[in-house]
Design a protein around this nucleic acid. Structure first.
Length: 472
DNA sequence: TTTTGAGTTGTTCGA
DNA sequence: GTCGAACAACTCAAA
């Protein structure tokens, strides 16, 4: 096989060698030319995600180099870059792992059509999900809108075994020139936060595998209940790595399944959470508008508040409600937020402050290193009440009740809020190092008074929701 | 076509 | 403090 006609592996959110169908397909044809393209879709990432992607790319470059390969970095529209590489190398085919958000779909379809018209084999592969979103159907051929039936439909399915990493990665005869990652400045928008969040990331496939093994050797046992308590290290924290494909969902599924069969309590619940990710992509595929518009159109007339001082206080972790502020500060300091805190801050923004869920979604996109378009679309619409599983309108999280139930000793709140901690620790103080100077926040300033009374906020939300029901 | 049972994650009140 | 009921009505999936 001539190594001259190398095959392009378009690397996207699959920074791994193991269980990577696109890579395996490319490697089967001979020499592989891995390329990552910084195009508009990638440029549009939020500050934290873009920064974290840069860390992932740096790590992955080293992994490829250790295998005698390289990661070629190129800036520009994907099609232009791929055409240029084809012209330089004589590549005859391009392989990539599918993404499922509308922007990526549109881009990929255009790339595929153009390349095929030019006689190039352009092949997309699964790998980001356990199940292609169109391969899960209800009995009548539709798509699922409710989680439990979705889970029941996929829980018993056989998942193909993981693909081993290719034993060798053959190099093209000549490597095309690559941009320098440092020149891309992917951390530029992170401001002072990067130095703080850096202490909380786990970059790369090896660390992802370690996280999985550690979780399955320990916390999975109590996962079902302990996962609700944000001060406890009870979760796998794999969302960060899944986002960039440093681990594949299939690897997690098989490991979790084995743990379940080994009698590990909590393993099934863990698998269900993994399938929630699948469900969110299922919905994003079938109703792409879920990412931008009220999933239930009858909500379009709801008088959401726009951006303003209240939303800004929410973003800054200064609502005066400790559980809410702890969550917001956790996100700023660590780049992630505990699942329960996500629900609480979301409920507070959309219900107590009656603010448009998209304002929260946008801030999460800016701050989360595990930003996922599908999971966040579903999550935000769920918590706002305008999405699938229309929550009963009275499901308004009370942050104080939640704190009593899930943070009774205040460990979580004190960990992240310096103003209420007797002796503020590293993470609480780090928040003030991470935030933009323009916010003018200092740990010695008094903790803010509540923006709004919780009972008043709840009553206002219920009244607004009832009004919507009358007019809808 | 109709029917039936169920729906991630909550809160509050009163016994 | 604990527990069950009420909080509406609707949508969804499958029989």
């Amino acid at each position: 096989m001539s190594s001259q006609a190398s095959t392009i592996w378009w690397v996207r959110r699959d920074l791994r060698l193991s269980d990577n169908p696109a890579l395996v397909a490319a490697a089967a044809q001979g020499a592989v030319l891995p390329v990552f393209i910084l195009d508009a879709e990638t440029q549009d990432l939020g500050a934290a995600a873009k920064w974290r992607l840069g860390l992932g790319l740096a790590e992955f470059s080293e992994i490829l180099a250790a295998r005698g390969s390289r990661l070629i970095l190129r800036l520009g529209p994907a099609l232009d870059v791929i055409r240029d590489l084809i012209a330089q190398t004589g590549a005859q085919s391009v392989h990539w792992g599918r993404l499922y958000n509308p922007q990526s779909n549109a881009r990929d379809q255009a790339v595929k059509a153009a390349l095929k018209a030019e006689g190039i084999a352009a092949v997309s592969h699964p790998g980001h999900l356990l199940h292609e979103p169109w391969q899960v159907e209800t009995g009548s051929g539709g798509f699922y809108r409710v989680y439990t039936p979705f889970w029941n439909a996929v829980r018993g399915r056989d998942i193909a075994p993981c693909l081993p990493a290719p034993q060798t990665l053959s190099s093209p005869l000549v490597w095309p020139v690559s941009d320098r990652l440092a020149d891309w400045n992917m951390g530029q928008a992170m401001n002072r936060g990067a130095a703080v969040v850096q202490g909380h990331v786990a970059v790369g496939a090896a660390r992802a595998q370690a996280r999985l093994q550690q979780f399955l050797a320990g916390a999975v046992g109590t996962y079902k209940t302990a996962r609700d308590f944000p001060s406890q290290p009870a979760t796998s924290r794999l969302s960060e790595n899944l986002t960039y494909g440093e681990i594949g969902p299939r690897e997690i599924w098989h490991a979790g399944f084995a743990a379940m069969q080994g009698g590990q309590a909590g393993a099934e619940h863990f698998l269900k959470e993994l399938v929630w990710r699948e469900f969110s992509y299922h919905l994003l595929h079938h109703t792409p508008q879920i990412a931008t518009r009220n999933w239930r159109p009858e909500w379009d007339s709801f008088p959401w508040a726009g951006d303003g001082p209240k939303a800004e206080a929410w973003r800054q972790g200064r609502t005066g409600v400790p559980f809410v502020d702890a969550g917001m500060r956790e996100m700023y300091v660590t780049g992630t937020m505990h699942n329960r805190a996500r629900m609480i801050v979301g409920s507070y923004l959309t219900k107590h402050l009656l603010t448009d869920w998209r304002i929260g979604q946008q801030w999460f996109a800016e701050c989360l290193i595990d930003w996922d378009p599908a999971a966040n679309a579903l999550g935000w619409q769920w918590v706002a009440g305008c999405g699938p599983d229309a929550a009963p309108y009275f499901r308004v999280f009370n942050p104080e009740t939640q704190a009593e139930k899930f943070d009774a000793n205040a460990a979580y709140r004190r960990r992240f809020i310096a103003e209420i901690a007797p002796r503020p620790g590293h993470d609480a103080l780090a928040f003030f190092d991470a935030v933009p100077r323009a916010w003018r926040l200092y740990p010695t300033a008094p903790y803010p008074k509540p923006l709004i009374g919780l009972a008043d906020g709840r009553a206002a939300a219920l009244a607004a929701y009832a009004a919507r029901d009358r007019t809808a």
